[in-house]
Design a protein around this nucleic acid. Structure first.
Lengths: 257, 257
DNA sequence: CCAAAAGTGTTCTCGGTACACCCATGC
DNA sequence: GCATGGGTGTACCGAGAACACTTTTGG
């Protein structure tokens, strides 16, 4: 479902969408050792937000999250995980205090509408390769772009908490679910995979122990070819053993680093 | 906030409560090696439900969950944890198919009201001592009582999934959070504590390893007195070292059994 | 004195961590 | 040949799992 007319959406959107309930997606993007997060900005406000949206009355919340992610990134069938529902009373309060909020015609239209109500938001996180996504702002936003996770702009609402909770959850889930299937190309080297883990966990890992761990998980298939990386020894190329990968996913043993 | 008049609530409840969004509480009760769950039944329907309720427009979702729990059990300040939000399209569908649903005047009043709408539900779980709770049905229910977790009655909606997810989450959280502070009397024996763990995890544990684990966590204080348990050696009485207990809670290391 | 439960200590194994040496590559 | 990063193996340590004997109590 596409929102073509912003003001029709403000006035009648509650016919198609559930009021008081929204979804916010912490879309983490990884590429070449850089971890970014997708944020959107509204006009005349200098704070940024997680991409969000509303739930159609005829779709599941998981479907709504997938749809929102696809609208913002162009990517479908992404691993997307519900992680927490945020329902504090003061979630959105700080916005009302901003003077910019009162001047802009868009926000004036929103005031008093179904959108101007206490809202509970369901948080989802996703992990994707940001080089494959093309960020697109939604109808309300002036901008939608990647931000380095280490240099975030000012954030609106309770979105700092949402991002922190998402990262904590991802790092915890990483112990159980070997990620990376979505984030790396078909063929990759172990140092590349290690760098992904190091970036997500925000700490360095021991090369030898990391290799041992991956070998005993058995989810990697080594190819004969290597990758040329300049004036160094060429690392082997690997692929995921997808079948074994799924076995490990269902297995509930933890992986620690 | 108390609902005094059921029909006023059906007609005007949306003024005070957020529509389309509810809370369901998986309230687990433990006592003497028995694990139970609190369920409510609606008139003329032979399926049971988790106790649930709506969120006041002026309270946080956590507060709403606490309130609902207190209304059903009389207990305040209970450890209550959000664990998942359920938003499938067909959550409530099976109810509409039941013939009993169409005959009862209560359900006829609900049809077409704000309550007869697609609803997303936030799941919370709690762990309490069921001997200290006095179950009370809500205004819609004909009964509210404990059921042994091993012998559950037929359940309505997606509540089987809710219960399964709650139990899975509790068992996972048990690895991190030493529970039991809420579920045991002030003074207890280690075998009693072990039985609590065994009941929650639904498997037996080794006495010696369990004792070692508790000792190295350091959350137990041994008293000089013992408890007389019949024709057997009298086990020592212990209390929780609450200060140390809180330290362990914040610590993120896992406890495995 | 006997049955049943409580209390305690040792061994084994596995996984995580720390650590050092050689190898390949391009300049 | 040298700098840089890739590939591999070993030693240690702590935690969990398996396991047996003694002690207490009431009948």
């Amino acid at each position: 479902m596409l929102i073509t007319d912003v003001h029709a959406f403000i006035q009648h959107g509650y016919r198609d969408f559930i009021p008081h309930l929204s979804i916010d997606c912490a879309i983490l993007g990884y590429h070449d050792g850089i971890l970014k997060i997708l944020l959107t900005a509204w006009p005349d406000l200098d704070g940024w937000c997680l991409p969000g949206g509303y739930i159609s009355r005829t779709e599941s919340i998981d479907h709504a999250a997938q749809r929102i992610l696809e609208e913002r990134t162009g990517l479908a069938d992404v691993f997307l995980q519900q992680y927490h529902t945020f329902g504090q009373m003061n979630r959105v309060l700080p916005l009302e205090e901003k003077p910019e909020f009162h001047d802009n015609p868009l926000y004036r239209a929103i005031r008093g509408s179904w959108l101007d109500a206490r809202t509970v938001s369901i948080g989802y996180y996703a992990l994707i390769d940001f080089s494959r996504a093309t960020p697109r702002p939604d109808e309300f936003s002036r901008e939608c772009r990647w931000w380095d996770i280490r240099e975030l702009p000012p954030l609106l609402f309770d979105h700092p908490l949402m991002i922190k909770t998402a990262l904590d959850t991802i790092r915890k889930d990483l112990q159980v679910h070997p990620v990376g299937l979505q984030l790396l190309p078909e063929e990759f080297t172990v140092p590349e995979l290690q760098r992904l883990y190091e970036t997500l966990l925000n700490r360095t890992l021991d090369r030898r122990n990391f290799m041992k761990k991956m070998q005993q998980l058995g989810i990697l298939i080594r190819h004969d070819r290597t990758r040329s990386i300049g004036s160094h020894r060429s690392p082997y190329l690997y692929s995921f053993d997808e079948e074994r990968y799924r076995e490990v996913l269902t297995d509930q043993r933890n992986m620690s680093f």
